[in-house]
Write a protein that binds this DNA or RNA. Sequence first.
RNA 1: CGGGGUGUAGCUCAGUUUGGUAGAGCACUGCCUUCGGGAGGCAGGGGCCGCAGGUUCAAAUCCUGCCACCCCGACCA
Length: 568
Amino acid sequence: MRVTRFPLSTTRETPADAEIVSHQLMLRAGMIRRLSSGLYTWLPLGLRVLQKVERIVREEMNRAGALEVLMPAVQPAELWQESGRWDKYGPELLRIKDRHDREGCFGPTHEEVITDLFRREIRSYRQLPVNYYQIQTKFRDEIRPRFGVMRAREFLMKDAYSFHLDEDDLRAEYQRMHEAYCRIFQRTGLAFRPVEADTGAIGGSVSHEFMVLADSGEDAIAVCEPSGYAANVELAPALPPQEPRPAPGASLEEVATPGQRTIAEVADYLGLPESQNLKTLLVEGSEGGLVALLLRGDHELNELKAEKHPAIKAPLTFAEAERVERELGCPFGSLGPVGLEGIPLIADHAAAAMADFACGANREGYHLTGVNWGRDLPEPETADLREVEAGDPSPDGEGTLTLRRGIEVGHIFQLGTTYSAAMGASVLDEQGQERTVTMGCYGIGVSRVVAAAIEQNHDDKGICWPAPIAPFQVALVAIKAEDPAVAEAAEALYAELTASGIDVLFDDRDARPGVKFADMELIGIPHRVVVSPRAIQDGSVEYKGRRDDEPTSVPRAEIVTWLKNRLT
RNA sequence: CGGGGUGUAGCUCAGUUUGGUAGAGCACUGCCUUCGGGAGGCAGGGGCCGCAGGUUCAAAUCCUGCCACCCCGACCA
């Protein structure tokens, strides 16, 4: 491809509203353009990368035995009513009406459609297992789209759905998909990590996310390097403290703490560490009353853990300040578990292990100190409620956790029978008995992979594409192209490289060298070859890898082999 | 949905306080010079100053309403 036939539309200046580096570089390199909030056009350069990722995904899914289909992006409401998600799914679901007033939606995911397809097409256990996938545009009406294609409303996703007669077969397929995903992300050249994950709204039991490690990632993950344990922090269990609770040493006292509300303020005022303060959070219970959640002052509530507790209403809802004032007569900052009549207490394991602690006195401007479980108030019910922290023991008992950030590029689920049961997807088994099938589902955010790759591979000059997903393999730059000898040499080399199957971007523009170099580096082409008068003189060309510091002189006769050795 | 902010050339932004002929840099077009790290000169093209009302002799600028976008939070997962 010649640059004179492939407008680059690179910019030197960084667009003002792009926050993260991948978004900035995708705009500056001319890969994408925003049409509207969360909606992006892929320009030719960006599309090339997107399609490379798509191709790797497709090849590995096919290799793993999955079958490609293509389902409609627009789906009828009936199917969603059948699965029960028409009412459950929030405003993220873009609902639409056609001219006949029939309701439908633009698909954010395709469990319903695929389950419907399955029940119409597959009759016998002998046709199982089967795994259908598609690569297709999804729409989720994100409340706050941001970071370019990283969290867009419309995006390209590979989604796969497998069907099985029993759980064992599902687990085997799940494992195969797990391996296929590892191959896919390895091939894209990304540093990634599979982590245990929550199943969320999709439902199901077992689930893993594939995280590309990046500081800009929106998810936090807990990792234990020695043992290999890795999980999304929202899921990672915090183990109860090993040491037994110290015996009470102080007596209960009420002290005035005027104006002190937050844990930090109270701890500072009382001269105690935050870990000696008890944090009391009031949330709505599943029966309509309030429930008090108790945490050590320096710990954070894990909302997902909380809302999975049977006594707590899901989604987690904090008590309103007004209601607390009315029912308890004090503000949030003065809440404590002592004497909270009629409100169940649930203490985090670490909170239950505290002794001689401080907490609110349920009276504005006062706190209690020297509080002890079992003496000043009953032993509480305990649960794992807190967010894990760096340095916590790993849940598998080996080593300690570190926290890292990641970008979720893939998510696989063992769904079970949630959809097949609701929608009557079954087959006849060996005995001629009708059996509800069990399902798995497997997603990859294809467009997000592109952004994640940039987050992980860039420098101050621009993108440094991993070779397998680079828009072009080689940049060929002619310097002093108006010199007939240079033009001729560059044309000849371009023809030769193209003929040997190398994907070349030939910068044949009448531009200064600095402009060409800067553009080729910004758009991140992995290999660069320069043809110049000075090199022609001694029968060589100049080679430089995108991450190399210095160029290398390579004999003209050897450059094609030289490149091929580096392309693989 | 709540709070904050911004809308002026394709992009990055001045100009708004104090009303008086719409600007700069980059990008774009032409010519000349230059040519191994985003060149220089000259000459150009490009604007419903987000939209709609209002005040005024006169509005990018003041007033009212609306819209869009961005950030933080909540929501969603």
